[in-house]
Amino acid sequence: MYRMMIILVMLIGGILVSTVYTQEGTRLLEYGDIVMNSKQEAMKKAKVKLVVFPHWFHRIRYKCKACHPKLFVMERGANDIDMDKIMRGEYCGRCHNGIVAWEPLYCDRCHIYEPPGER
């Protein structure tokens, strides 16, 4: 009798837990993500999507002071970043050079964001 009760409780618990944990996360932008859109027109011309910089992902490995304010000024649109500079080892290219982090050869790892209206 007790064994049956325990089994029943476990079953119900299992169902409850599984319904909570299988909800799909449909969020595209995480809190702290920066969409880099100050060169929107140029990116559109080059037929690539907008760049998303995930702050929180980088924050696990680096403190803010590793990049700010020397590498990137803390102001939207104040950093004149382009792919040429990144290839030459400035801005993102300071780490993304194949030595510290992966080299900037995989467009679709950063150019991932489409504004909701244009999808």
Partner: peptide
């Protein structure tokens, strides 16, 4: 439900780096 970065730092769960290549950057 958001990550508590200060607690993570205080608990020693994270060991983020101060610099990219060397301490002279700072």
């Amino acid at each position: 439900g958001y990550p508590d970065w200060t607690r993570a730092m205080e608990d020693g769960l994270l060991l983020p780096r101060d610099y990219i290549y060397g301490p002279e950057e700072l």
